[in-house]
Lab assay of single mutants.
Amino acid sequence: MLDDRARMEAAKKEKVEQILAEFQLQEEDLKKVMRRMQKEMDRGLRLETHEEASVKMLPTYVRSTPEGSEVGDFLSLDLGGTNFRVMLVKVGEGEEGQWSVKTKHQMYSIPEDAMTGTAEMLFDYISECISDFLDKHQMKHKKLPLGFTFSFPVRHEDIDKGILLNWTKGFKASGAEGNNVVGLLRDAIKRRGDFEMDVVAMVNDTVATMISCYYEDHQCEVGMIVGTGCNACYMEEMQNVELVEGDEGRMCVNTEWGAFGDSGELDEFLLEYDRLVDESSANPGQQLYEKLIGGKYMGELVRLVLLRLVDENLLFHGEASEQLRTRGAFETRFVSQVESDTGDRKQIYNILSTLGLRPSTTDCDIVRRACESVSTRAAHMCSAGLAGVINRMRESRSEDVMRITVGVDGSVYKLHPSFKERFHASVRRLTPSCEITFIESEEGSGRGAALVSAVACKKACMLGQ
Rank of each mutant, 00 (worst) to 15 (best):
D4V: 12
D4I: 08
M8V: 07
K12F: 11
I19V: 14
E22A: 06
Q26K: 11
K31F: 07
M41E: 06
D42K: 14
R43E: 13
L45R: 04
L47K: 14
H50P: 03
K56Y: 03
M57A: 04
M57R: 02
M57F: 01
L58W: 14
L58C: 02
T60A: 09
T60V: 06
P66S: 14
G68E: 13
E70N: 08
V71Y: 12
G72L: 02
D73C: 15
L79I: 08
L79R: 03
R85G: 03
M87F: 14
E93Q: 09
Q98A: 12
Q98K: 13
W99E: 13
W99L: 15
V101K: 06
K102L: 13
T103H: 10
K104Y: 08
P111R: 08
M115F: 06
A119K: 01
M121V: 10
F123A: 04
C129N: 02
C129I: 03
D132M: 09
L134S: 02
H137D: 03
M139C: 03
K142A: 05
P145M: 15
P145D: 11
G147Y: 05
F148L: 05
F152D: 02
R155K: 00
R155E: 01
I159Q: 03
D160Y: 03
K161L: 04
G162K: 03
K169H: 02
G170A: 01
F171I: 05
G175R: 02
G178V: 02
F195E: 00
F195M: 02
E196F: 03
M197N: 05
V200G: 05
N204Y: 15
D205V: 05
V207H: 06
V207Y: 05
V207N: 00
M210G: 01
M210R: 06
S212L: 04
S212D: 15
S212G: 04
C213E: 13
D217M: 15
C220W: 00
V222S: 03
V226I: 10
V226N: 03
C230T: 15
M238L: 05
M238Q: 10
E242S: 09
D247H: 00
E248Q: 14
R250H: 15
V253K: 04
T255I: 08
W257L: 10
G258K: 08
A259W: 02
F260I: 00
S263I: 08
E265M: 02
F269W: 15
E272T: 15
R275Q: 15
E279K: 15
A282L: 14
G285K: 07
G285S: 12
E290Q: 00
L292Y: 08
I293C: 00
E300Y: 02
L301F: 13
E312M: 14
L315K: 01
F316I: 10
F316V: 13
H317L: 13
R325I: 09
T326H: 13
T326M: 10
R327V: 11
R327G: 14
G328I: 14
G328H: 05
T332S: 14
F334V: 10
S336Q: 06
S336N: 09
E339N: 06
G356Q: 07
T361W: 08
T361R: 08
I366A: 15
V367D: 06
R369M: 13
C371N: 09
R377I: 02
A378Y: 04
A378T: 07
M381I: 11
C382R: 02
L386Q: 14
L386S: 10
L386G: 01
A387P: 01
G388E: 06
I390E: 00
S396N: 12
S396C: 11
R397Q: 00
R403K: 09
I404N: 06
G407T: 10
V408S: 08
G410H: 01
G410M: 02
S411W: 01
V412I: 04
K414R: 14
L415H: 08
H416P: 05
K420I: 05
R422L: 11
R422H: 13
R422I: 12
F423D: 05
H424R: 10
R428M: 08
R429V: 13
T431W: 02
S441W: 08
S441Q: 05
E442C: 15
E443K: 07
E443W: 12
R447C: 08
G448M: 02
A454F: 09
V455S: 13
V455H: 15
L463R: 13
L463W: 12
